[in-house]
Amino acid sequence: MSTVLAAEKALIGRGITGPVSVRIEDGRIVEVTEGAADGARAGLLTPGLVDIQVNGAFGADFAEIDEEGMRRIVSDLPRTGVTRFLPTLITADLSQLLEQARIVLNAVSTVNGQGARSLGVHLEGPFLSPKRPGVHDPSLMVPPTPERVEKMLELPSLRMVTLAPEMPGGIEAIHRLTAAGVLVAVGHTDATGVQTTHAADAGAGMITHLFNAQRGLGHREPGVPGVALVDDRYTLGLIADLAHVGADACRLVFKAAGDRVALVTDAVAAAGMPPGVYRLGGADVLLSDDGVPRSADGTIAGSALTLDRAVRNIISIGVDPVVAFRAATIVPADTIGEPAMGRIEVGALADLVLWDDELKPAKVWVEGKLVHDKETAEPETPIPPHRETAPQPS
């Protein structure tokens, strides 16, 4: 049985064209026709958004996930345009981290097919630099010894590891992980520009949240961002809430490396929720009225960003909408090694979003199945935070 979706405009390749008809069979696109289309829907049709760094959302933290929380996440992500996501876990004791990952994967298996689909798991730690911890606990950061790396590789569906390449054994770990098919991202690192280049030589392919928790850009010592902006081997993860990275810096990133930017949320349980106290990796974070989650000492702790808002933010600062949408679709899909996602073409999975005139998701399909319809969706009733008191400094 085939289904035809027609829209007045669609993102095809590197341009917006229309009208366009997309025929779907067995969850995949089998035909794309440009030109006159009967019953074309108003709005812009794009591939589904792909978020490859998300720690939680809608009141649920992946480090403390259960089936109910996972069901809420996969059901609610499509209303933000996200059809595929990579659950991310932050630094913990390695054994505990791997157990958290197994719980995540088990929870995913129980809700498969009910909304957005998981891509596996991303471990953001513990092979990070205590010099650039961000909100992570530096006391739990350890070098990536061969034994620890092999233990990590026993985890099924490990797709991505963020590490600091300057840590003892870092380059060897990058070689081993990439040889096993795992994407290695450079992050929470004090690496110099030279060390950042060496990491790419070893196979690292991404920068985790560019500019944040890493050695900064200098005019003689380029640090991580300087090398990342000019080294075509790197995809640049960018948190475009305009708080982690300011508008002018975001414009700079897109001017320098537009086709290599992957918009990510780095969202925590506070995403899609009212102000209050939420969890991240077993610790409390406060989401205040400014919309930025922070730890007890005031450190930014992930984000409350949704990926559709990231796209709108980037368009609002003057980036071409085609480039902005590609940064949330085909770029992250290709970076994580998923050539059948993030595009509207024959053979691709039928993960699609129809956007209204305000660039908000009106309808969302995952493998051809309608999983969000703004016209019939029930009003959102945010789950209250787990407690109302602010976290206190220790």
Rank of each mutant, 00 (worst) to 15 (best):
G48R: 07
G169F: 05
E380D: 09
N212E: 03
A180P: 12
G258D: 13
A185R: 03
M160E: 08
E68V: 14
V20N: 02
L370M: 11
F58Q: 00
A107N: 15
A60D: 02
L229K: 11
T17N: 00
Q392R: 08
K360G: 09
V264G: 07
H244W: 12
A256I: 06
Y234Q: 07
M160F: 05
T3I: 10
G203F: 06
G223M: 06
L263C: 09
L177Q: 10
V227L: 12
V311R: 12
D76K: 08
A270D: 13
Q392W: 00
H122K: 09
P274N: 06
D290T: 12
L370K: 02
A204W: 11
S21A: 15
G193C: 09
S394D: 09
L280I: 12
Y234A: 08
G298M: 05
E338I: 01
F58S: 02
E64C: 04
A6Q: 02
E150R: 15
P385I: 05
L89P: 12
N55Y: 05
T381L: 09
P78K: 10
I300Y: 03
G368K: 00
A271T: 06
I24Y: 06
D232A: 14
V22N: 05
E345T: 14
A213K: 06
A60F: 06
S303K: 00
A390M: 04
T91Q: 11
V364I: 01
H122V: 08
G337R: 01
D334T: 10
D201K: 02
A60I: 01
L252K: 04
M160P: 05
K151F: 01
H244E: 10
L128M: 07
H386F: 15
E367I: 01
I239N: 05
N55P: 09
V32D: 13
V227T: 15
R159Y: 05
G276D: 08
G125E: 12
S295N: 05
P391G: 12
Q53E: 03
Q392A: 07
L286S: 11
A243C: 12
D61W: 02
T33W: 00
D373A: 05
V108Q: 14
E154V: 01
P391K: 11
A10I: 02
S139V: 03
P126D: 13
S21T: 05
L354F: 00
V135C: 13
P385G: 04
V253I: 15
G318F: 03
T17D: 02
D308L: 09
R220T: 10
A270G: 13
R309S: 11
I171E: 11
